[in-house]
Design a protein around this nucleic acid. Structure first.
Lengths: 142, 142
DNA sequence: TATTGTTATACTCTATAACTATA
DNA sequence: TATAGTTATAGAGTATAACAATA
């Protein structure tokens, strides 16, 4: 394979992500919880309770984007809102028991995508996993 | 690294794609052309002129999703609409000279993402490229 | 004054359903 | 009748700007 420049790879990555995102939207993991809500549940499960502002920062979105997601999750009783111990402007969002269970189950219910991945070789799966770790570095650093 | 099941990998992939997509939206490649329009230009550049229906199929979206994108691209004179030679229901979309130039330039103007990728090791870049080829197989096969 | 968060508003993207025109 | 495409409508997701409450 010939040399691939960073700019070419960036273009390929941008298109690949758009298309994978479209394919994932057409095959939702769980109809009861939208993609943005799933991401919020995953972040809360991984890092524990946090304020809406910190959740927005970790998700890489602006604070107004998390408000409707949290309102929905609260209505579904998947998260709960506690008062901040010292700052009354803030609140602390934590998973409820149901929310924690759901978040754990969602990873096990990736039916469509998981069946696709099962069709890959072990080598390809390892490549995907390593690429995801690289992508995480790309998106998490400032 | 311990074994990663297909279901776990699927969950990681879904979250990774959502987050990379958010990061890409916050750092657009070209403000004059939206992400969906860029994808359409890239497909036309890669596969040549085609009908709106074929474009939708190649993009993995429903026909109504391409109509507004094509209308915008036509208004911007980046694509042009030709009559189908035998079927008057269809039309053929082709890049204009400007559209072809823009599509070629966009790959060279991936400033934000390309600079991130330049910070990766050669090995990481090769892993990303191989992962993109795997992802293309995941999304293109039925 | 500065910060945290929400509400108001607008835009992008895509889906399903209904419709038009042509085959 | 069947197919290609558009229009109408709706919903998810996110942004900026304006606001309220608290620090």
């Amino acid at each position: 394979m010939p040399e691939t420049t960073a700019a070419e790879l960036a273009g390929l990555l941008r298109l690949g992500v758009l298309r994978l995102n479209r394919a994932l939207r057409a095959n939702p993991a769980d109809a009861a919880v939208t993609a943005a809500a799933r991401a919020a549940l995953a972040t809360l499960a991984q890092h524990g309770p946090m304020s809406p502002g910190e959740l927005a920062r970790r998700e890489g979105v602006r604070p107004p984007a998390v408000s409707p997601v949290l309102a929905t999750l609260e209505r579904q009783q998947l998260v709960r809102r506690l008062p901040h111990p010292t700052d009354r402007r803030q609140s602390i969002i934590e998973l409820t028991g149901t929310g924690a269970e759901l978040s754990a189950e969602i990873r096990a219910r990736e039916a469509w995508l998981a069946s696709r991945i099962r069709g890959l070789s072990d080598r390809d799966r390892r490549t995907l996993l390593r690429a995801l770790q690289i992508v995480e570095r790309l998106t998490s650093s400032p």
